[in-house]
């Protein structure tokens, strides 16, 4: 399963690579990274059918995670990628907006990786 992680913090890459070290080693998961909404769209255009699941931060300079979500849900229909939104501000407005735009799940920072792994299993089965 290929997961595209979108976050403007560079160290998120290292963190995910480490948290999913075993899964990566076993070949269960392949991680790809984008550091902005714009970069994520570029990746999606270039590798349309690859990323099954997108994990995106909401608060990013430039294109926000919610705008990215809107673009993805409008543009990439087959196969529809699963999009999970992550935010540091777990407020209702963001949640409602994300769900309205078609987000498949909503996570709050700090990310609980054990819970996330459980979610990944159920979402992709």
């Amino acid at each position: 399963m290929k997961i595209l992680v979108v976050d403007d913090e560079q160290d998120v890459k290292t963190l995910f690579e480490q948290r999913f070290r075993k899964e990566i080693k076993n070949g269960e998961i392949i991680l790809a990274f984008a550091f902005s909404g714009e970069e994520a769209l570029e990746f999606m255009n270039a590798n349309e059918h690859e990323a099954v699941l997108i994990l995106s931060d909401i608060n990013m300079p430039g294109m926000s995670g919610l705008e990215l979500l809107k673009h993805i849900k409008e543009k990439f229909e087959k196969p529809p990628p699963i999009v999970m939104m992550i935010t540091a501000y777990g407020d209702k407005d963001n949640y409602n907006e994300a769900i309205k735009l078609g987000a498949d799940d909503f996570l709050t920072k700090p990310v609980d990786f054990i819970a996330l792994k459980e979610k990944l299993k159920t979402k992709t089965q």
Binding site: L15, P110, V111
Partner: peptide, 17 residues
């Protein structure tokens, strides 16, 4: 709060790992 939360998340995560 946001600017402190982010590095603290990294500190917690990397020390867990």
């Amino acid at each position: 709060a946001h600017e402190i939360q982010n590095p603290l998340n990294f500190v917690n995560n990397f020390s867990d790992i």
